[in-house]
Each structure stands twice: as structure tokens, then as C-alpha cells.
């Protein structure tokens, strides 16, 4: 039983940052932006989270800083891709590398360390115990006592779903992706919608970054996003942006990650670390097979 609870908790831990970043990606996906900058936004968020938490001794300031740091990246994306009309793909790659460079540079300049910064003065984001529920055996161990960000993530799934499908803004958002000109001619600036979607993406990626560096550890390491932004991009593409689908697929990725940790007893750690990436490849494989079948049906 303990193993199962451990697996579920591991799954939630691994899924949270991917899910948050993918929700951000979903916003921009609906707005018709080919946004691959989640990796960079997340990394920037992770760095600023540590910065805020370290200097103000408060996890709340850490989260705020993380969001601001990720929004800064989003604003640079806006400047280049929306204002200067640069290719979104190149902007994204450039931004990811800029984020990597900036955080490495600031790590050296501000904290005077190379590679990683950790300190007892960094305040982690607390775990929340829900009264009553925490006393229920098994269920209490899973539902209660998770990190604050995990609960925020659940909330974020619901909010994003509501925002995209049930509000006027959501309608415009989808219109911006579906037919920009049409939206523009009906008097709503598509660019404004695109900018808002990027800012929301920044907020969500900032939360993901804060979870990485202040969730279960209190450390920032160079390039600590380690491809999670790319995995979240894969998740967005796999389910065509649907927030519910993203939640499911992120949990699946999280599960394989937890499974990887579990397999470490029998396998060298380098192989188990590959598991999430291999899982992404397998998911893409299944996706393309299904797409092929669909096309065949349409063709016949």
C-alpha cells in the first residue's frame, strides 16, 4: 500500500510542473501561437522564485517573483514575435537560450556560485494539510498534505477550461487562433488577445518554475527545467490543447516518472531518468498511429 501511495505522490510531483506549463501552452495554442518558450519561462520562474524567497524569506514573495520572472520572458516573446513579427519558432528558441544564459549569468553574478545555489534561508512553498480529510487513512495521504502548488494546479485546470470554453475572452481567444483576420475585422484586436494569452502562459509557467525550485527542494540548478517545457509542448500537441486532455496526459507522464524512480532498484539510474522522454516518444507514436487511422477512415 505504501508503494502505491508513493507512486501516486511521485506521479503528482512529476506531473505538476508539466501540467502547469502545458496549460500555459494550451492558452497560446488556442490563440494560434507556436509557442515553444515554456522551457525558458519555467527556468526563469525557477530562478526568480529562489531569488525572491532568499531575499525576502517568504515563499509568497518567491512565487510572486517567479511569476514576474516568467512574465518578463513572455514580454520579450511579445516584443519579438508580436510587435516585431519575428518567426515564432526562432523567437522561442532564442528565448529559451536567453533564459538559460540569463539565469546562469545571474546565478554567478548575484549568488557568486556556479552550477547550483542552495541555502537554508530559502523558504520552501508549504504543504497544505486539509483538516478532517487528512485523518482518513489512504485517501488522506494522497488528497491532503500536498504542496500548495499542486492544489493551485488543480484549480488552474478548471480555470483554464472555463476561461477557454465558457467566457467571451475564450471565444475570442479561439477565434484568434482559428481566423485572425476575421477577429480583427470584427473589431477585436487579435494581437491584444495573443499578448494576453502569452502573459497568462507566463503566469502558469512561473508557477511551474516556482514548484521546481521551491516545491520539494530549495535549490536552483543551471538548466533545471531539463526538458520539462518540451514535454509539456508535446502534451499540448498530443491533445490539441484541451485542458482536460492535458491534465490526463500530464498525469500519465508523471506516472512514468514515478515508475522510473521505482525501477531504480533494478536498473542504473541513467536508464530510469530516460523514462519520461521515452514515454513522450511512445505517446507521440500512439498519437500518429491514431491520426493515420482517422485519415484512412476519412479517405475511405
Amino acid at each position: 500500500m505504501k508503494i502505491v501511495i508513493g507512486l501516486i505522490n511521485g506521479m503528482l510531483t512529476a506531473a505538476t510542473p508539466i501540467l502547469l506549463a502545458a496549460l500555459g501552452g494550451s492558452m497560446t495554442y488556442y490563440a494560434g501561437i507556436f509557442n515553444i518558450a515554456m522551457e525558458g519561462m519555467m527556468l526563469s520562474g525557477a530562478f526568480f522564485a529562489v531569488l525572491g524567497s532568499y531575499y525576502f524569506h517568504s515563499w509568497l514573495v518567491g512565487i510572486l517573483f517567479a511569476i514576474l520572472g516568467a512574465i518578463l520572458m513572455a514580454l520579450i516573446f511579445v516584443l519579438f514575435a508580436v510587435v516585431l513579427k519575428m518567426d515564432e519558432f526562432i523567437t522561442g528558441i532564442g528565448l529559451n537560450l536567453l533564459s538559460l544564459g540569463l539565469t546562469t549569468y545571474m546565478l554567478r553574478q548575484i549568488f557568486k556560485v556556479k552550477g547550483a545555489f542552495s541555502s537554508l534561508e530559502i523558504v520552501p512553498i508549504p504543504k497544505i494539510d486539509i483538516p478532517l480529510i487528512k485523518d482518513i487513512p489512504i485517501i488522506g495521504d494522497v488528497i491532503s498534505g500536498q504542496n500548495l502548488i499542486v492544489y493551485l494546479t488543480v484549480l488552474a485546470v478548471i480555470i483554464v477550461h472555463y476561461l477557454v470554453f465558457k467566457t467571451r475572452f475564450g471565444l475570442r481567444l479561439r477565434a484568434a487562433g482559428y481566423n485572425r483576420t476575421c477577429l480583427d475585422t470584427s473589431g477585436v484586436s487579435a494581437n491584444r488577445i495573443r499578448i494576453i494569452s502569452l502573459l497568462i502562459c507566463g503566469i502558469l509557467c512561473g508557477l511551474a518554475g516556482a514548484f521546481l525550485s521551491l516545491g520539494y527542494v530549495t535549490v536552483f540548478t543551471e538548466g533545471m527545467s531539463a526538458g520539462k517545457g518540451w514535454i509539456s509542448l508535446a502534451a499540448v500537441i498530443l491533445v490539441s490543447g484541451s485542458p482536460k486532455g492535458i491534465a490526463l496526459i500530464s498525469l500519465l507522464f508523471g506516472f512514468t516518472d514515478g515508475l522510473g524512480l521505482f525501477m531504480q532498484r533494478t536498473m542504473p539510474p541513467q536508464f530510469t531518468s530516460m523514462v519520461p522522454y521515452i514515454a513522450t516518444l511512445i505517446a507521440l507514436f500512439v498519437y500518429s498511429i491514431r491520426l493515420k487511422k482517422k485519415q484512412k477512415i476519412i479517405g475511405a
Partner: peptide, 27 residues
């Protein structure tokens, strides 16, 4: 074979190569 976009597969293969070579030089 499966029409999987090389843009994501090459990225994932990067991470896999990273760990594969690390394993090779560790064992």
C-alpha cells in the same frame, strides 16, 4: 514510418542520448 514530427522526437532523443552516454561512461 509513423509520421512523427522530427522537431519533438529529436528533442526527446537529445535527452535520451544525454543519459545513454552518461550510462556508457559510468558503467
Amino acid at each position: 514510418l509513423f509520421n512523427m514530427n522530427e522537431f519533438i522526437t529529436t528533442l526527446m532523443l537529445n535527452m535520451i542520448a544525454d543519459y545513454l552516454t552518461l550510462w556508457a561512461i559510468s558503467y
